[in-house]
Write a protein that binds this DNA or RNA. Sequence first.
DNA 1: TCCTCTGTGTTGAACGATTGAAAAAAGAAA
DNA 2: TTTCTTTTTTCAATCGTTCAACACAGAGGA
Lengths: 330, 330
Amino acid sequence: MQDTIEKNSMATIFDVAQEAGVSVVTVSRLMNNPKIVSVRTAEKVQAAIESLHYQPSQIARSLMGKRTNTIGVIVPNITDPFFNRWYRYLEEFASARSINLLMCNTDDDLKKEINYVKLLHSQRVDGIIIAPYSRKPVEYLLKIHMKFILFDRIMEDINANFVTTDHYQGGVEAIEYLTALGHTKIVLLKGGGVILADTDRHKAYVDVLRAHRIPYDPRLVADCGFQEEEAYRVVYELMSGPDAPTAIFAISAGMAQGAIRAIQELNLSIPGDVSVICFDELPGQRIFRPAITHVTQPVKELAERVMEGLLAKINGTEVEGGVSMYLPPQ
Amino acid sequence: MQDTIEKNSMATIFDVAQEAGVSVVTVSRLMNNPKIVSVRTAEKVQAAIESLHYQPSQIARSLMGKRTNTIGVIVPNITDPFFNRWYRYLEEFASARSINLLMCNTDDDLKKEINYVKLLHSQRVDGIIIAPYSRKPVEYLLKIHMKFILFDRIMEDINANFVTTDHYQGGVEAIEYLTALGHTKIVLLKGGGVILADTDRHKAYVDVLRAHRIPYDPRLVADCGFQEEEAYRVVYELMSGPDAPTAIFAISAGMAQGAIRAIQELNLSIPGDVSVICFDELPGQRIFRPAITHVTQPVKELAERVMEGLLAKINGTEVEGGVSMYLPPQ
DNA sequence: TCCTCTGTGTTGAACGATTGAAAAAAGAAA
DNA sequence: TTTCTTTTTTCAATCGTTCAACACAGAGGA
């Protein structure tokens, strides 16, 4: 009696019930099914809720076997312009549905991937959207029967749904664009060969060159592991050497940025001395001159499809194995 | 006996206990204090844990009054380069401490702010890092005794800890830089006047001009609400009119980008016709020519201080009201 | 008067873990 | 054998909420 102020802990449903002079179940009913409570009681309870600033504990709710209303998102790097813009939409869709996102950055590091997958497991998230680097985390998810969707990645031998841009088609259009301009010495700046986006675009490179009877020169194809610095180094070397290439296809905006720095440093001009094309928008694309031609991925749509696909899985309303591929190039 | 495969639900501590032929308490003890369990038993239990892919439910743990090991982060827009880079570091620090971050984008919208604060409340996060637009969410946090730190914002009349760059000092250095170059007609592209970063930099603008006996021309100060398009419009108009200004100070990189687009469109040169300086790095800063002078915020340090400050609050190890201000300009 | 129906409200178990105390085995030392 | 440790188990309570089942009152019908 002497002290009605709760010092530390937050108000519980019990406090509300006491304050309103009803039982906890009555309060619970009001929260979940307001219709079945009389108006007079509802008012009393509502007043108590407001005066105590009560918010039901999602934790306790989740424990009752319900949803956690949380989805885990595992990406290599949220700073990357592609993932960044994509995630922003994802968050928007989630927020509109009162779903929380737990975002995890892996830096394409196997250990971090596993850690995060276990973390999300112990958080009992309802589902996971993952752009994995290795197979391990996906295998783990399968073992524990976690619902998930692969994003921007495919694992052919694993029965898992995925959502991704059609990287092959995008690669084809990019290289066709360059060959149409008459280029034959085209540099390919690629990742490590593990990721779908990488292998597919590489394949496109090979196929288009062959179709145009342009010999494949392995010296022009460089594994940069999606690293800007590495791309810078490679391009600097190639462009300052003899028989310099005339075009560059960068598989990511980051590597394109490295390439451009090298070109600038050598006082070469774009597109006078060398043409550059890349996937995704360059940071600062809108103000960079000359404008760099690029293949755009439908970020918003990708976010939408992934979210819808996962929710369908969670709610058990999915129809087929949800496979989607898009691509509007520019 | 006929069916040991658990179809839907995940393994619980009970399943592990059964599988290992011990009691749940023993399993729990092993997880939390491995020393007090004999090696032989530990091995049995460990085997069961692995075969069932058991991960203790963080939900149940949290319910026992422990931590949730989750921190809420409320920012206006994660796509903004400043918040983006900052958040990346924050996530790194959190991950290193096995802490989850729940990230919330408000778009500086009051309704979203309130919703998210309530959401984090019901999630029983251990603390919140917030860059609020309005007072409401902060007042709410105070009412429910939630631990939080203001980031990049200050509310003078509210007793709350904060971490921010010294925006006034940064503004002073930026304007001093321009006046030292002899500029007197300096445009100020600012936000809406609500946010600290905005008012402080505006104040710096006024003070430095006065110190140099340069008259204050209100036509040169434009509220762009941090919108790139608005900045574009304003600069286009000012630069194409008579008596065009010779320098532009943009309070954010986004507005600087808008300004630069306008300048490019008018076929004016930087810094020949007009100088540009801004806060934070331009997207594509590394490849944009000419390089735009800018005031950098110590993103990594900001993330570190905020995280440490909040953890100190949560752990009850804080010393004083944690007020921090930094700024290395460039 | 008795019975049933309706609209309320209450009771107690359940969710998955942790924790303290106490009891029960098992092994070692006396 | 007794006593003392060490290890493990049982028992019970707790966290905040939901939910099935039940109780109780008043209304209406037989």
